[in-house]
Amino acid sequence: MSDLLTIELSYNNYHLLFPRIIISILLILGMVLLITNIIKRVKNGNLSTFNFKFFVDNFDKVKLFGTAVLLVVYASTLEIIGFIPASVIFMFLVTLLYIGNIRKRTIMISISNSLATTIIVWYVFGQLFDITLP
């Protein structure tokens, strides 16, 4: 019994001990969750119908994927073209995307929002507080 409850410790393996335990518990829990889910499905008789919905009904494809793409592009261009140009362009496009049309008024709002934010962030963070900007 006491052998079962004793873990062999060696200095070289300290770093693997805890992660191994956590992975094991995670796997067991994952299995249990999966099995209970299957049992529930068998009971309700809908084993084969898999109607898991990831997106909400009528989700806004353009805005969701647009945001995701713009975020990645923004992050990748930051260090290449610098903080101010990247942010101004990003803010302009995102605001435009969220309003969702390209009327004159929309463009004006987007431009002012992007310029104002970028300059304020640049001034407050970069100049006033001396925080590193990309």
């Binding site: 995102v94 605001t95 709002i109 962030v121 925080i131 990309p134």
Partner: peptide, 29 residues
């Protein structure tokens, strides 16, 4: 309107993450 606020938040988040370890791009990722 949210369309004004949310872009501002994104930029603030990116700047914040970048700055937290004094300019590490990996933090933004």
């Amino acid at each position: 309107p949210k369309y004004l606020i949310f872009p501002i938040i994104v930029v603030a988040c990116v700047v914040g993450s970048y700055a937290i370890n004094n300019g590490v791009m990996f933090d933004v990722w």
